[in-house]
Simulated assay, not measured.
Amino acid sequence: MRAIWKGAVSFGLVNVPVRLFSATENHDVQFRQVHEKDGGRIRYQRVCSIDGEEVPYSDIAKGYETSDGRMVILTDEDMKSLPSRSSKEISIEKFVPSEQIDPLLFDKSYYLEPEKSSVKPYVLLRDALEKADRMALVTVAIRTRMTLAVLRVREGVIVLQTLLWADEVRQPDFGVLDEDTHATKKELAMASSLVDSLAGDYEPDEFEDDYSEAVEALVESKIEGGEVKAPEAAPEEETEVVDLLAALQRSVDAAKAAKRGGGTKDEAEATPEKKKPAKKATKAKKKAS
């Protein structure tokens, strides 16, 4: 694994230097959109919805759409004026009972690895968390933006889990549940019996992603059967760097042509369309003579 962040956990007067590693990875099956005829990848262009023209990255800005549909353009200077944090500190604000953190608030999970010089204070914090049966509520700046997170212990390692802000959790509004409907005693007894019959412990390895396995098997069978396409490499899109180099090359060629012909640089840079009429006029003059 590769560390994505380095900093320190601030624990009272103790600082624990740590490295941050992503604790999860996505194994979802990824499909590409392709042309059915030849297997070529489908590409999307950045097209302006007003003038229909393709827009280069250099002309793309950030826009904030208001509730009434208007667009506010934010410049780079505007973005620099926004609050940002560059601190490399995970600051423990308080220790809260674990049951007070609704799992719905959990966002992303990271492992904290101590530096070699900070193993002892790391273990001290880990053991203190386990003994108190609490989570450490912390603030941390990852990619310049401050966020809330909690520290907890999993299999002897401190895990940092970022939290959603309170206003990012939607409130359920289901009118059908407003009705005063409850299960009868007999129904509840039968449901409880069913729960007891299916009671057990969570074993992660007991369940498998049969969809991913089926997709991989299907793809493998098609490869073995020769049902695979090798689309021709699409021409690379010209970039601004290529355009700049082309412009410089044209300038060099024009300067050399001007030097050889003894004319001015402007004459050498004249386009073929401008030169052709002059040649035709010369031929017509010779015929007339």
Rank of each mutant, 00 (worst) to 15 (best):
W5K: 00
N15L: 14
R19H: 13
A23R: 03
N26P: 01
F31E: 00
G39Y: 05
Q45M: 07
C48D: 13
G52E: 03
E53C: 06
A61T: 10
A61I: 06
T66K: 15
D68W: 07
S81V: 08
R85T: 11
S87F: 06
I90V: 12
I92N: 03
I92P: 06
S98K: 05
S109G: 14
L112H: 06
S117W: 04
K120H: 11
Y122R: 01
E130F: 07
M135C: 04
M135Q: 07
I142E: 04
T144E: 13
T144H: 07
R145G: 08
L151V: 10
R154M: 13
I158R: 02
V159T: 09
L163E: 06
L164N: 09
A166K: 06
E168P: 03
E168S: 00
H182E: 11
K186E: 15
L188R: 07
V195R: 02
E203N: 10
E208T: 13
E216P: 02
L218V: 07
V228N: 01
K229L: 15
A234W: 10
E237C: 07
D243Y: 09
L248A: 15
Q249M: 13
K256D: 09
K259E: 09
P272W: 04
K274L: 07
K274C: 05
K275A: 15
K280P: 08
K283E: 12
A284N: 14
K287D: 09
K287T: 07
